[in-house]
Design a protein around this nucleic acid. Structure first.
Lengths: 223, 223
DNA sequence: GACTTTAGTCACATAAAGTGACTAATTCGC
DNA sequence: GCGAATTAGTCACTTTATGTGACTAAAGTC
């Protein structure tokens, strides 16, 4: 990735690794090898014969030590915008990780989406694309669950959806829709979070959708 | 596009031009310059400094003489799958055209989606991606309207949605949802199509959405 | 023990979607 | 000309889904 000398690099693979941190979305950036004051999205030039998907996974692994369990292509970005590399096209991927298990390697750091350092125009477009991807696929892919630990309370899940949808949800409606979608399963555990009644822990249940009648449509449960 | 000699081509831009033909979706293919018995999606190697979007538009123009008024990137495809070019990555675009105005240039022809000739693995993935893109964006983008002429009857519009959704819709529900979404405007014209009562012609109305309260959700109006 | 805080549920009001049947305007066959 | 057939367009009613406030439950705080 630091391979700035390679003038023959025809394209790069860049990854937008996202997590939820202190009730805000955050992405992982890496300190530029040239200008140590600047940051960029992790990227690499795929090796010969390396697939795009695989290159994206490797880039994520370099950053976090583990691969993310959900990764999806955002698109190809070119259009003359600048990039840390010489490549005139970059293919970018979105990966999601629960913040609890995401310990960045040296040189990498999380930045809240609302407070990013300066990025190249092309990489800014990728971050923008990542945000739109999340919104558009929120009700088709288990995005919220990939940002949470393996077990969670329903309040945590609701707060995650509120974060992703930029709107408050009504508790009763949220739970009713969740039940109808058959997406979670209660565990035997409860967690007491200081004050208030303890909450039951749930886990994501990717069970064969009982009749995918309508799918999950949380985006319409406004407060 | 025929430039098969260019070994330095790092990536190509391919377009999936789609139309609705005889109540089926169809895509535009071009006869291979090498093997005249085989067909492929139209593609090109972008010139230096040419943006991806622009390259896609030009490729569409080469095929149809006019640019399509709706074009969107599907994604980047690599993964070792073969392609008519030497490039190991191809960025593909989806374009929609009304069949009435789509007269392909020499060497190009429409093929129904259900009856395609053999394509390279990579281009088959692109066609697959195009289909998924249509389904996923049907209620966010004016896809059906881009496949219809500028004025149309509501029955034609409903049949187009039925084609795109692979399901029958109920007339009354369809029209109710259409009214609520404020998407079309009646014209003064009526068209008599042989037997039966004449139908009023409508046009697409991209007017400022009166409260985008829910958006259009035809996909749930099953018969 | 009274008050606060968070979890979890219920019941009812409102809105949207599913559905069959109806009226309207035309062509076709006779 | 007239009734059957065909397609357009609308209505009214039923069923489902969503919006919403208020309720009970179980903890901590003082």
């Amino acid at each position: 990735m630091r391979d700035r000398s390679s003038k023959t690099a025809s394209y790069t693979v860049d990854v937008v690794l996202m997590t939820a941190m202190r009730n805000e979305l955050a992405i992982l950036l890496v300190r530029n090898s040239g200008d140590r004051e600047r940051w960029s999205l992790p990227w690499r030039v795929p090796q010969a014969g390396e697939s795009l998907d695989f290159a994206a996974c490797r880039t994520a692994q370099d950053a976090l030590g583990e691969s993310t369990d959900w990764m999806e292509q955002i698109g190809a970005f070119g259009d003359g915008k600048r990039h840390p590399s010489e490549a005139d096209v970059s293919v970018s991927y979105l990966g999601l990780v629960p913040h609890e298990t995401a310990a960045p390697h040296a040189g990498y750091a999380w930045f809240q989406l609302a407070d990013l350092p300066t990025l190249s125009a092309r990489q800014r477009a990728m971050v923008e694309g990542a945000s739109r991807k999340i919104e558009s696929r929120l009700d088709q892919a288990p995005i919220a669950f990939r940002l949470l630990p393996s077990t969670f309370t329903l309040s945590e899940l609701q707060h995650m959806y509120e974060l992703l949808l930029h709107k408050r949800l009504h508790k009763a409606s949220f739970r009713r829709a969740l039940q109808a979608a058959w997406l979670v399963e209660p565990t035997e555990e409860w967690r007491s979070e200081g004050r208030g009644r303890p909450a039951q822990l749930f886990r994501y249940l990717p069970k064969k959708r009982r009749r995918p009648h309508r799918g999950l449509r949380f985006d319409f449960l406004s407060l």
